[in-house]
Amino acid sequence: MSDRAIENARPYPPDYVSAETLAYRLDCSRSTIDAYVRLGLLPKPETIGNLQRWDFGQVKAFIKAQNADIKAGNRPETDEEDVYLKGLRGGSPKKGER
C-alpha cells in the first residue's frame, strides 16, 4: 500500500503537514510550495523536532488574509518578485531577468 493510499484512508487530514502534503492539499507542485514560501505567498513552516511542518489551518488563514488584502488594493510585500507574475500584471522584466 502506498503512502498516498494510507493518507487517503485516514478518517481526517493531519493538522500539521509536510511540504509534499501541503502541495497535494493546494493542488500544486512541491517546487511551487518552496517558491511561494520564498516569495512570502505562503507562511514559513514550523519546526517540530527535526521536521518542517505547516499548520494547515494557519496556511488557510494566511491565504484568506492575503486575498482580503489584495481585494482591498494592497499587494503583499515580497523579497523577490516572480517575473512571470510581474509580466501578468503588465510589468516588463529588467535586462537579464527572464
Rank of each mutant, 00 (worst) to 15 (best):
M1Y: 06
M1W: 04
S2L: 02
D3G: 07
D3F: 11
D3W: 12
D3L: 14
R4C: 03
R4T: 09
A5M: 11
I6Y: 10
E7M: 09
E7N: 07
N8Q: 13
N8E: 13
A9T: 10
R10Q: 14
R10Y: 12
R10S: 09
P11V: 12
P11Y: 07
Y12Q: 08
Y12N: 05
P13G: 00
P14R: 15
P14G: 01
D15M: 15
Y16M: 11
Y16G: 00
Y16A: 08
V17M: 07
V17S: 03
V17F: 03
S18Q: 04
S18K: 07
E20A: 15
E20Q: 15
E20N: 13
T21I: 15
A23T: 07
Y24A: 14
Y24H: 15
Y24T: 14
L26S: 05
D27I: 05
C28A: 05
C28F: 02
R30P: 03
S31T: 13
T32E: 08
T32Y: 07
I33T: 00
I33L: 02
I33A: 01
I33R: 00
D34M: 12
A35M: 11
Y36C: 11
V37T: 05
R38P: 00
R38H: 14
R38C: 09
R38I: 08
R38W: 08
L39A: 15
L39Q: 15
G40K: 02
G40M: 00
L41R: 15
L42W: 00
K44F: 06
K44D: 10
K44M: 08
K44S: 15
P45M: 08
T47S: 14
T47V: 15
T47C: 10
I48E: 06
I48S: 06
G49D: 03
N50F: 09
N50T: 14
L51T: 07
Q52W: 08
R53W: 11
D55N: 15
D55H: 15
F56N: 06
F56D: 02
F56A: 01
F56L: 09
G57P: 02
G57A: 14
G57K: 12
Q58L: 15
V59P: 02
V59S: 02
V59D: 01
K60N: 08
K60S: 10
K60E: 13
F62H: 14
I63L: 13
I63Q: 11
K64M: 11
K64Q: 14
K64R: 13
K64W: 06
Q66V: 05
Q66N: 12
D69Q: 14
I70P: 01
I70F: 06
K71W: 03
A72C: 04
A72I: 02
G73Y: 03
R75I: 10
D79L: 14
E80R: 13
E81L: 11
E81D: 12
E81K: 10
D82V: 02
V83W: 14
V83R: 07
Y84A: 06
L85T: 06
L85A: 09
K86W: 04
G87D: 03
G87E: 07
L88H: 01
R89L: 07
R89H: 03
R89W: 03
R89V: 00
R89K: 03
G90R: 00
G90A: 00
S92K: 13
S92C: 06
S92P: 01
S92N: 10
P93D: 05
P93Q: 05
K94D: 11
K94T: 08
K94C: 07
K95E: 14
K95H: 09
K95F: 12
K95I: 12
G96M: 00
G96P: 04
G96K: 03
